[in-house]
Amino acid sequence: MASLRFLPPPQSQNLNSLSTDFVNRRVSYPQQQLNFTKITALTNSDSSSPLLDSKTQVLDVVPLLSSSEAYERLKTFREKIKGKQQYLAMYSSIFGGITTDPAVMVIPMDDHMVHRGHGVFDTAAIMDGYLCSLDQHLDRFLNSALRSKIDPPFDRENIRRILIQTVSASKCRNGSLRYWLSAGPGDFQLSPSGGHESALYAIVIKDLSPAVVTPESRGVKVITSSIPIKHPMFAVTKSVNYLPNVLSKMEAEEAGAFVGIWLDNEGFVAEGPSMNVAFVNKEKELIMPHFDKILSGCTAKRVLALAECLLKQGKLTGIRVKNVTVEEGKEADEMMLIGSGVLVCPVVQWDEQVIGDGKEGHITQALFDLIVEDMKSGPPIVRTLVPY
Rank of each mutant, 00 (worst) to 15 (best):
3 S>N: 11
4 L>D: 05
6 F>C: 10
6 F>H: 13
8 P>E: 06
13 Q>V: 15
13 Q>W: 15
15 L>F: 08
16 N>D: 12
18 L>D: 11
18 L>I: 07
24 N>T: 13
24 N>R: 14
32 Q>D: 15
42 L>H: 06
46 D>N: 15
46 D>R: 13
47 S>K: 12
50 P>F: 07
51 L>S: 05
53 D>G: 11
63 P>F: 06
64 L>N: 09
65 L>H: 09
66 S>M: 12
69 E>C: 08
70 A>D: 01
72 E>F: 11
80 K>E: 13
82 K>T: 12
83 G>I: 09
85 Q>T: 12
88 L>E: 06
89 A>N: 03
93 S>F: 07
97 G>W: 09
97 G>A: 12
98 I>H: 01
99 T>E: 08
101 D>T: 11
103 A>L: 11
103 A>S: 15
103 A>W: 02
105 M>Y: 07
108 P>D: 02
114 V>K: 01
117 G>L: 09
121 F>M: 08
121 F>K: 06
121 F>A: 08
125 A>Y: 02
127 M>C: 14
128 D>K: 14
131 L>N: 01
132 C>T: 05
133 S>I: 07
137 H>K: 07
142 L>I: 10
143 N>T: 10
144 S>E: 03
147 R>T: 05
160 R>T: 06
166 T>A: 09
166 T>W: 00
168 S>F: 01
171 K>D: 02
172 C>S: 11
173 R>K: 15
174 N>K: 10
175 G>I: 03
175 G>H: 03
177 L>S: 03
181 L>V: 08
181 L>N: 00
182 S>I: 04
184 G>Y: 02
190 L>F: 14
191 S>G: 11
193 S>R: 13
193 S>G: 12
197 E>G: 12
202 A>N: 06
203 I>S: 04
203 I>M: 12
204 V>M: 04
205 I>P: 02
205 I>E: 01
213 V>D: 09
220 V>M: 09
222 V>H: 00
223 I>T: 04
229 I>W: 00
230 K>P: 01
231 H>P: 04
232 P>G: 09
238 K>H: 11
240 V>F: 05
250 M>I: 15
253 E>H: 14
255 A>Q: 15
256 G>F: 11
257 A>Y: 01
258 F>W: 11
258 F>V: 02
262 W>T: 00
267 G>I: 10
269 V>G: 00
269 V>Q: 01
270 A>G: 08
270 A>K: 02
284 K>G: 06
287 I>Y: 00
295 L>V: 06
300 A>T: 07
301 K>H: 08
301 K>M: 13
302 R>S: 09
303 V>D: 00
304 L>R: 11
305 A>M: 14
306 L>R: 04
309 C>D: 11
310 L>S: 02
312 K>W: 06
317 T>G: 07
320 R>A: 14
321 V>Q: 10
321 V>E: 09
325 T>M: 13
328 E>T: 10
334 E>S: 07
335 M>E: 02
336 M>S: 04
337 L>Y: 03
339 G>Y: 03
341 G>S: 13
355 I>N: 03
361 G>L: 04
361 G>I: 01
364 T>H: 04
365 Q>H: 15
370 L>K: 00
371 I>P: 00
375 M>P: 03
379 P>L: 10
382 V>W: 02
387 P>A: 09
388 Y>I: 01
